[in-house]
Write a protein that binds this DNA or RNA. Structure first.
Lengths: 200, 200
DNA sequence: ATACTATAACTGACCGGTCAGTCATGTATT
DNA sequence: AATACATGACTGACCGGTCAGTTATAGTAT
């Protein structure tokens, strides 16, 4: 048996949590390994027992975030609902996601800037977006087939919806006093849906 | 008379152009003052004759960008058009703006991340967004008053449109092969407008 | 024309602070 | 004793910013 219990997983999570907070507060570059060490209550040397570099730490954080988002996206449901209701439920799930992720938004935008310079990041974003489209496009297509929606291009509608989700978060960053993320995502999607519904 | 002609304005522009390129390519922190100096063909010392720090340089770049956008926003026209046409023209202007700004998008996202940590940046963004709303909300209100649009909340519609503009750019960053910025901004705004128009 | 002067424009070696990453040493557990 | 875990002082590369010195040019004097 080991002379000491294996604490590797706890330590890693503990370090990632601290690092996430520090990165959010200061940004990648201004975040010091010493800051993260202080936050965990461990020493800097110990960080390097569990992560071999600062980059390694960042990558691990981003992976953890994307894993969460993918899990959420993959939970498809509501095939028995009307297309409007299905999109609305999807929207509610998206809102829950965004609210859960509010605290890592600063890192997320730094990550976006990085996308222009890093192939791996580009791939992750592309994959995330395709996932999203794979869920939403068929949902809209079903609405068209059932006569609930007009003859629109389902991909264009899905892109409009995606733009509304992501864009509302951005507007909220611009001015959080004027934008209520939850309310405005909901109202914008409602306007979009009303535009494609076949009048009763 | 001066022993040498004043080249201050040309130099500043020259340095800002070079800095913009380098910041876009490497990001703010990885960009070296020496890189910028090399790009201009001037020496590092000369940069400091015109800008007192690296921060000063990035601030000047962002100011230049915002000035351009404000100039665009303030050019109101089209009071004699239908509201739909006015919004469409505004959209075309926005598309032109975005296309013109494509090359500084990486810096823009770094700037957004900064918004969470910097009051000045927060103020600039807020101002930008208010400007935008000040133009678009009355445009939509006019459509409602004239009976062209349904009784919707004009602010909600303006926010939806703003989210579409900004969000489409973001989706394009995610996957530039799937998103045609110009086409998808246009189609999404069209869907939105169709949703608020009073049926003929 | 030529030489001289004043000064704006420019240069680049250098300084000093910073910080990611290392490692010799120590401690707790079995 | 053996092993896993932990420490924090230390190192050295790096880079923003400085400044003593150099160069170019417009005007002036001869």
């Amino acid at each position: 048996m080991s002379p000491r219990p294996n604490v590797s997983d706890e330590r890693k999570a503990q370090i990632l949590n601290a690092a996430e907070q520090v990165f959010n507060k200061k940004g990648f570059d201004l975040a010091r390994m010493d800051d993260i060490a202080d936050k965990t209550g461990l020493s800097k040397g110990t960080l390097y027992l569990y992560f071999k570099s600062k980059d390694d730490l960042i990558i691990a954080i981003l992976e953890r975030i994307f894993q969460g988002v993918f899990r959420q996206l993959e939970r498809r449901e509501g095939d028995e609902l009307s297309a409007t209701e299905a999109v609305s439920q999807f929207t509610e799930a998206a809102i829950r996601d965004y609210k859960r992720m509010l605290h890592i938004i600063p890192v997320a935008y730094e990550f976006l800037a990085l996308a222009f310079r890093n192939k791996t990041v580009q791939k992750a974003l592309k994959q995330y977006f395709r996932h999203y489209m794979d869920v939403l496009v068929p949902m809209i297509q079903r609405g068209i087939d059932s006569g609930e929606f007009r003859q629109v291009d389902p991909q264009e509608v899905a892109i409009a919806a995606g733009a509304i989700y992501e864009g509302t978060v951005l507007l909220w960053v611009y001015d959080s006093t004027l934008i209520d993320m939850e309310r405005h995502i909901r109202s914008s999607i409602r306007l979009l849906l009303e535009g494609i519904q076949v009048p009763a």
